[in-house]
């Protein structure tokens, strides 16, 4: 299938399923669980009283357990599929030979370009500086944010959460109250951070071509992706059903 070449740099552009079925399942299940956890968590925290404490705690505990299970499985999935590399912001594609390079400078330059774009370029109608590729599904800012989510906010929540939920098993020593308060503190702080993260994250989904463009992509899995000739051939040969059509504009 011949793909249309872009005029400026001669790259191919196609509609490709870049978010696999599991990745989408992960994303939306995680979204539902995080929403549930935030809603019940704020109820437990005493911000509002929509449901009984008992309902809130039980729901929170179940959702938290499911989310931890989901994350365990997803970590496994990320490493076995190689998808984990997508979340390493410093791992960038070399502009000339297309190989992965670990470069802080190239990352900072590209990060700055994206930050500048969202602060200014987007308002002037400039194109997004990052073109999605199979190797880099996320822009550097996005990758950095998701990495923060995965190695800072997420673990702060689940580690403190596990201590919190198992409080009755370890509170039986002098000074345990101090550790409990540390647990609660970390859990509350990380929960606020998570909610702030989600607000920005949801807003960012509206910055695509159309306000629902990214949402649609996360539902169908299909995005407009720059392909190299090799990638194109690989997809045509090994995963033709992922290659939807050639009529994308990157």
């Amino acid at each position: 299938m011949p793909l249309r070449k872009r005029k400026d740099d001669g790259k191919l552009c196609a509609h490709v399923v870049i978010y696999t079925r599991y990745e989408r399942f992960w994303h939306w299940t995680q979204a539902a669980l995080i929403f549930t956890l935030a809603f019940t968590g704020l109820n437990i925290h005493g911000v509002y009283h929509v449901m009984s404490m008992e309902t809130a705690v039980v729901t929170h505990d179940i959702a938290a357990t499911l989310l931890i299970l989901l994350w365990i499985f997803t970590t496994f999935w990320n490493f076995t599929t190689g998808n984990w590399k997508q979340f390493l912001p410093f791992l960038q594609v070399h502009p000339e030979d297309g190989r992965f390079v670990t470069g802080l400078k190239i990352f900072i330059n590209r990060l700055w370009a994206v930050v500048r774009y969202y602060a200014w370029g987007i308002l002037k109608g400039e194109p997004h500086p990052h073109k999605k590729t199979l190797q880099r599904k996320q822009n550097p800012l996005q990758a950095l944010a998701y990495l923060t989510f995965m190695i800072v906010i997420g673990p702060a929540l689940w580690i403190s959460g596990i201590f919190y939920i198992l409080y009755d098993l370890w509170n039986d020593f002098a000074g345990s109250q101090m550790w409990f308060q540390a647990t609660v503190f970390v859990h509350t702080a990380a929960a606020f951070a998570m909610i702030a993260f989600v607000i920005i994250h949801v807003y960012m989904t509206t910055t695509g071509k159309t306000p629902l463009h990214y949402i649609k992509g996360m539902i169908t899995g299909v995005e407009e992706v720059e392909l190299s000739e090799i990638e194109k051939e690989y997809l045509e040969t090994h995963a033709p059903d992922l290659l939807k059509d050639e009529n994308a504009s990157c």
């Binding site: 005493g46 609660v184 509350t188 909610i195 702030a196």
Partner: peptide, 24 residues
Amino acid sequence: GFYMPGRDRWWWLDLLGWLAIFGA
């Protein structure tokens, strides 16, 4: 002498948290 969920909070942590949320 103890922290009780639903009753207690660190007011300044809550303040920072809400600043983050409303800032966003």
